[in-house]
C-alpha cells in the first residue's frame, strides 16, 4: 500500500501501527512526533493507531543538541 512520509511517496507491505512504522524506518520511537493526516498522534497511541493506504505522515525526530 502507498503512503506519503515527509512529503515523499513510500510503499509499505500492509497496514501497521504508527509504532511499527517508526521502528521499520529505523527511528527510535522514544523521541519522535508523528502527524497522521494533519493530526498529531499522541505518543501513548502510537501502538494503537493504524497507518492505512493513502495516509500522509510527518515524522519529526526531537533532537537534543544545542
Amino acid at each position: 500500500m502507498q503512503v506519503v512520509i515527509n512529503g515523499e511517496p513510500k510503499e509499505l507491505d500492509g497496514p501497521m501501527t504508527v509504532e511499527g512504522l517508526v521502528r521499520q524506518l529505523g527511528i527510535n520511537p522514544q523521541f519522535c512526533a508523528v502527524e497522521r493526516n494533519k493530526m498529531l498522534v499522541p505518543r501513548r497511541q502510537h501502538g494503537e493507531v493504524t497507518v492505512e493506504a493513502g495516509d500522509s505522515l510527518e515524522i519529526v525526530t526531537l533532537v537534543g543538541g544545542g
Binding site: N28, Q30, R43, R44, T61, V63, G64, G65
Partner: peptide
C-alpha cells in the same frame, strides 16, 4: 513533555559528538 513523555535512555539519542552540527543549522 506532551511531545516527549520521557528522557531518552542514555546512549540512544543522537548527540553533536556522533552526528556533528553545522553553523547554519544552529
Amino acid at each position: 513533555r506532551c511531545i516527549l513523555p520521557e528522557e531518552p535512555d542514555p546512549g540512544t539519542a543522537l548527540t553533536c559528538d556522533t552526528a556533528g552540527v553545522i553553523a547554519p543549522a544552529v
